[in-house]
């Protein structure tokens, strides 16, 4: 027989226990609980099914559900580890863990590499780099001539592609980031250290007390 808990907390598909997620990420149990509050908010903004759909992700990022952005698409795809088109709570916490100030720098470097390896080939090709620069320019007011774009891409590639084989592999990327640490600045969200202040999990705690 199932459990009929009148005060039971409704959990969504993909929900994982905070203690489990805290053990696998830089977050404490309280921080994971606070992230669950944020997750509930994001995952119910358009479709209240406890899963973050791409439109909900875009709405939170851009205040516009229909905005398309190459980088937001890439982030969404990397968060969606199961590749089922939605971000579940466990995926959300584990992925955000990489952005925690205390997460290992190797994890941040690896995540950024996967982000920029648009076609998932295991290396970043010159065409991909150019495609990303064009995407960035498209979303900004910056206008650069084709020549200038080529120069920026060529120059960056010549610095990063140490082996000169026309692609940046993980080893080269790691080396390049060690010389240019600012490249992974956006892989750290200082905000995550204060997540319990932003999303105090009073409700969750009182539910725990209720059941005791």
């Amino acid at each position: 027989m199932g459990c009929f808990c009148s005060k039971g907390v409704k959990r969504t598909p993909g929900y994982e226990e905070p203690t489990v997620l805290a053990a696998e990420t830089p977050f404490t149990v309280s921080e994971v609980e606070a992230l669950y509050e944020l997750f509930k908010k994001l995952s119910s903004s358009i479709i209240d099914d406890g899963l973050i759909h791409k439109e909900e992700f875009n709405l939170a990022l851009f205040r516009n559900r229909n905005k398309r952005n190459l980088f937001a698409d890439r982030i969404f795809d990397l968060f969606d580890v199961k590749r089922n088109g939605v971000i579940e709570f466990g995926e959300f916490v584990r992925s955000l863990g990489v952005f925690h100030p205390n997460a290992p720098i190797e994890d941040k470097i690896a995540f950024a590499f996967r982000l920029y390896d648009l076609r998932n080939t295991g290396s970043i090709e010159q065409e991909e780099l150019k495609e990303m620069v064009l995407a960035l320019l498209h979303e900004s007011d910056l206008v650069l001539s084709e020549d200038v774009i080529e120069t920026i891409v060529d120059k960056t590639f010549s610095q990063a592609d140490a082996k000169g084989d026309g692609k940046i592999d993980q080893e080269e990327w790691k080396e390049f980031v060690s010389k240019n640490p600012s490249l992974i600045r956006n892989m750290t969200l200082p905000y995550l250290k204060d997540i319990t202040l932003a999303f105090p999990s009073f409700v969750l705690r009182s539910e725990v007390e209720d059941s005791e």
Binding site: D73, L129, I152, T156, R185
Partner: peptide, 26 residues
């Protein structure tokens, strides 16, 4: 910094799509 002196990855990292702090705005 003039864009032409910028590293392409530096330029890319300024994308709004990579600024996840927006997720935490109330």
């Amino acid at each position: 910094v003039a864009p032409v002196t910028m590293n392409a990855f530096e330029l890319i990292s300024t994308s709004q799509g990579l600024n996840l702090s927006s997720l935490f705005e109330k």
